[in-house]
């Protein structure tokens, strides 16, 4: 599934970029994330709890940041595995100055497998968008602090 979108952050580009590389901030913004543990340079392990409607599941996940080109772009890969299936997201994020803040745009791919893929069909797109929106909303909140 292809995904893409644009978000506006109320901070300068350098700051936006560094926030997006900061494991503490990422941990606060990734929905359900219980903290990031560095395993290698830009690789982290995490535990993620998905809770949506009555659906809930624990995922063992990984976050990886690559192709860093500060403050313009980088690639973010997030994956999680759990009893109810797995998900994998990989996207290129680009940052540009806009209206005194930073516009972050992303294009990527989301892959979902296992039970969640089969039952969530009708709702996958909506749900993926919502999770990404929550991520950026939270990021905007962090930026405001």
């Amino acid at each position: 599934m292809k995904i893409g979108g644009v978000y506006q952050l109320p901070v300068a580009r350098d700051r936006a970029y560094s926030m997006l590389q900061d494991p503490a901030i990422l941990a606060r913004c990734i929905p359900g994330c219980g903290g990031l543990n560095r395993t290698a340079g830009n690789e982290y392990n995490m535990q993620m709890k998905l809770a949506l409607a009555s659906i809930s599941g624990l995922f063992e996940g990984k976050v990886r940041i690559t192709e860093q080109n500060p403050p313009e772009s980088f690639r973010l890969a997030v994956e999680g595995k759990g009893k109810i299936g797995f998900m994998k997201g990989d996207g290129l994020l680009r940052l540009v100055d806009k209206d005194g803040g930073t516009e972050v745009s992303y294009v990527g791919d989301v892959q979902v497998g296992g039970t969640i893929a089969a039952v969530g069909q009708r709702l996958l797109d909506t749900t993926a968008k919502m999770m990404i929106k929550r991520f950026f909303d939270q990021l905007a909140e962090c930026a405001g602090q």
């Binding site: 892959q111 497998g113 893929a117």
Partner: peptide, 14 residues
């Protein structure tokens, strides 16, 4: 099936 071989019509709801 999606391009990764996941069956998207995996239940009678779909």
């Amino acid at each position: 099936y999606d391009e990764n071989g996941q069956l998207l019509t995996g239940e009678l709801m779909d």
